[in-house]
Write a protein that binds this DNA or RNA. Structure first.
Length: 460
DNA sequence: TCTGATGATTGGGC
DNA sequence: GCCCAATCATCAGA
């Protein structure tokens, strides 16, 4: 009530100022001629404050005494009407609420008072709110907007999406056909997300617009009976927009999440893992087992292997890395495989050698350009074969057991099954100082040639 | 569904 | 930058 009293005092003062401040003697005369303006203002304010203080029941009881439930019970307390009537200045106004309202609305002082009330309201409550509500632009929304723009979800359709799809395809490392399928798949899914995003955004905007209009109409309607300034309406609109923008942020957030999931699905190569085809694995294994003493292909060898296997150089590196570790971890398990590839390589080399002999042109293992390798012509197995064929090359002592094994396998037993069954091939005995021996530094740290050089095998 | 195989990734060492 | 070792995640066969 203190506030109300202050407002009342302020209002009367302001109202007085509003009229007297102009210093127009005519207006003062006008006021005087119109009766008692100050008293009028006071009366109106009194009415307003009385209305404000009343509870709904009181208002009903006072305005509709004959209809109020209390009076339905037969009460005819004269104070009811007397109280209401007592509040009426001049005593000439009807007791009926609508009449009072109408009288207030039609009062000649109403517009002036109304604007003053609006002004006070704005200066007190709204100014405080205004300070609190003026937030700086949310950096999170900016981030989300930027991301959606970069991903091609918001803004023009071309751009980030395709780039991301291309990146996904490149990362997948699959065949071109696979890549194009992934690409289109990614784009289709991104387009789907984009469509949902825009559809939802449109819905939100429409809802926001409808709700704003609705509230504005309500406020305009109410502004006839209570002080609502245009600024207040603007502020309310801003609040609504802020609320809706927070919903929009949620939409943007979930869209970003969807895009991230999509990206991770397409960009995460682990999810894209495909076993290499049989031929590629054979090529890699052939190289590995034929260079068992130093299975570290040079960059050039890796490139050639990658080309042969239709995979990337890094995939070749991965494969050799995995192979070395897994071989070393469980040599016994890989023994059969080692035997198989040793024999296979030996047979291949034998065929080449035979062809070379027939053509009266001796095979030259190192006839290739430096840095290149030939699966049949280089490596331990080749040396073994040369030995088996009695060509008497210099063989590293570490390879002798393998050579012997192959010799027996190809010339004495003539079959892989007996070879593997007898356990004659023991790659772990190839070299006491070889990479398999974890107690000694692997040859990669101290090879005869450059680390990983394919020729280190032949020279060894 | 389970399990072994396998390609890829990660973190540390050199 | 390469390698090793551990680990993850997926594939593929039983």
């Amino acid at each position: 009530m203190d506030d109300q009293t202050r407002m009342l005092t302020g209002l009367t003062g302001l109202a007085g100022l509003a009229q007297a401040d102009v210093g127009d003697p005519d207006s003062v005369r006008k006021q005087q001629s119109l009766g008692q303006p100050q008293q009028d203002i006071g009366d109106i304010l009194q009415q307003i404050m009385a209305i404000t203080d009343e509870s709904l029941d009181e208002a009903q009881a006072r305005c509709w005494p004959e209809e109020s439930p209390a009076h339905w019970g037969g009460s005819d307390d004269p104070t009811e009407g007397g109280r209401a009537g007592g509040g009426m200045a001049g005593g000439g106004l009807p007791l009926n609420f609508q009449h009072r309202k109408h009288a207030l609305n039609c009062h000649r002082m109403k517009p002036a008072l109304f604007s003053v009330l609006c002004e006070i309201k704005e200066k007190t409550v709204l100014s405080i709110r205004g300070v609190q509500e003026e937030d700086p632009p949310d950096p999170q929304i900016m981030r989300l907007d930027n991301m959606l723009l970069a991903e091609g979800v918001s803004g023009p359709e071309k751009g980030g999406g395709s780039a991301a799809a291309a990146a996904a395809a490149a990362a997948a490392g699959g065949s071109p056909t696979d890549s194009s399928i992934e690409h289109s798949d990614y784009r289709a899914k991104l387009a789907q997300i984009r469509q949902i995003y825009h559809s939802e955004l449109e819905k939100y905007e429409q809802a926001c617009s409808e709700f704003t209009n609705h509230v504005m109409n309500l406020l305009r309607e109410q502004s006839r009976t209570r002080p609502i300034s245009p600024k207040e309406i603007e502020r309310m609109v801003a609040i609504i927009h802020r609320k809706f923008s927070s919903i929009q942020m949620q939409l943007k957030q979930s869209t970003c999440e969807a895009v991230m999931i999509l990206r991770s699905r397409f960009l995460d190569a682990r999810r894209k893992r495909r076993n290499f085809n049989k031929q590629a694995t054979e090529v890699l294994n052939e190289y590995f087992y034929s260079h068992l003493s130093n299975p570290y292909p040079s960059e050039e060898a890796k490139e050639e292997l990658a080309k042969k296997c239709a995979i990337t150089v890094s995939q070749v590196s991965n494969w050799f890395g995995n192979k070395r570790i897994r071989y070393k971890k469980n040599i016994g398990k890989f023994q059969e495989e080692a035997n198989l590839y040793a024999v296979k390589t030996a047979v291949d080399a034998a065929n080449v050698s035979a062809q070379a002999s027939q053509a009266n042109s001796p095979a030259t293992p190192n006839s290739g350009s430096p840095g290149s390798y030939s699966l049949s012509h280089t490596g331990d197995a080749y040396l073994s074969l040369r030995s088996l064929n009695g060509e008497g090359l210099n063989i590293a002592p570490s390879l002798q057991p393998q050579v012997d094994t192959l010799h027996r396998a190809t010339h004495l037993t003539g079959g892989y099954e007996e070879l593997s069954g007898s356990g004659l091939y023991t790659p772990h005995r190839l070299d006491a100082n070889s990479w398999q021996d974890t107690t000694t530094p692997p040859p990669v740290t101290s090879p005869p040639g450059p680390p990983g050089s394919v020729h280190s095998d032949t020279s060894n």
